[in-house]
Amino acid sequence: MKPVLHAALAALVLPLGAASAALADSGQVSIENAWSRASIGTSRPGAAYMEIVNEGDEAVTLTGIKTDIAMMPEIHRSSMNEQGVSSMAPAGHVSIAPGETVALEPGGLHAMLMKLQRPMHEGETFPLTLIFSDGGGVAVDVPVLGIAARGPGN
């Protein structure tokens, strides 16, 4: 039982290890359609959304985010179970295959901005940096839309 379990674990872990061991090149990552919703003051957490495009030939792994607007920014994932119950948890590392796009979007992966340092006002932008496993960062200016915004298109 145990060796089988170990083998199964190894099979699960190995591809992840291989992906991050390869020379993940965050220089090949671009960010599109970033946006966020205005906050009411600073007591509630904010959320930011964007599309992360891996234009390189190697997988890249998103390991975290940094922004001066929040003391605790993290990639979180909202999910819905079969009974329609929503929950939210830290997403951990997010791997993006070569040529693939990962969307941070409402109801899924999102940049959760905990402990806001200042209110997010509609019409302003704030800087946010995505951190990758190669140590590199990709910066983006995130426009703040209205609190009831549905995306950058409307």
């Binding site: 007591s43 509630r44 957490p45 959320a47 929503s86 409402p106 109801g107 959760m112």
Partner: peptide, 10 residues
């Protein structure tokens, strides 16, 4: 709940 940053405003 109003402290919900993602699902509820959506």
């Amino acid at each position: 709940f109003t402290y919900c940053p993602d699902v509820c405003p959506t």
